[in-house]
């Protein structure tokens, strides 16, 4: 394997010799939409489209999480509802350049949309488009 194609290892750590990863933050809130956002972020991580990262680490200003986020090639933030907790958490920590996906903009409703494979699939597909766009922009 050449250095330029080296992928993150099992612990998710990648060498600088490879390109910096895209990081995905989900609100992962208590509502149905938070759950869908969380599951979609995990699915994107599993598909290798980005690395799901800890929003709580941003809130807690954990130095390793903060420094890694600063070094990311692109950031996708997924919020469930219009409270935009994930977006605000990122902005309060000084991160202002990221793609933002809100599940309510996909027609999902807090309290009524089912947490199922179809809902998660729709979020994953919308996130794929955004991740492709940030890749082009980056």
């Amino acid at each position: 394997m050449t250095e330029s194609t080296k992928q993150p290892d099992a612990a998710g750590v990648s060498c600088q010799c490879s390109s910096a990863p895209k990081l995905i933050f989900s609100c992962s809130g208590a509502s149905n939409l938070g759950c869908i956002a969380d599951q979609a972020a995990r699915q994107l991580n599993k598909l290798g489209l980005g690395n799901m990262f800890c929003l709580a680490g941003i809130g807690g200003r954990v130095s390793g999480i903060m420094a890694s986020t600063e070094a990311a090639s692109a950031i996708l933030v997924i919020d469930g509802c219009g409270l935009e907790c994930a977006k605000k958490t990122m902005e309060n920590a000084g991160f202002n350049h990221f793609a933002h996906l809100r599940l309510i903009d996909l027609g999902m409703e807090r309290g009524s949309t089912s947490v199922d494979d179809h809902s998660i699939f729709r979020v994953v597909e919308a996130a794929k488009v955004l991740l492709a766009e940030v890749a082009v922009a980056g």
């Binding site: 750590v13 910096a20 420094a67 890694s68």
Partner: peptide, 27 residues
């Protein structure tokens, strides 16, 4: 690699001074 991940670090090399991560993914 597991010790590195425990710092919350996503890329290496990383520089840690007195327990605080100062830089990630750059020399």
């Amino acid at each position: 690699i597991n010790q590195i991940a425990a710092f919350g670090v996503m890329m290496v090399p990383a520089l840690v001074i007195d327990g605080e991560v100062k830089a990630v993914g750059k020399v």
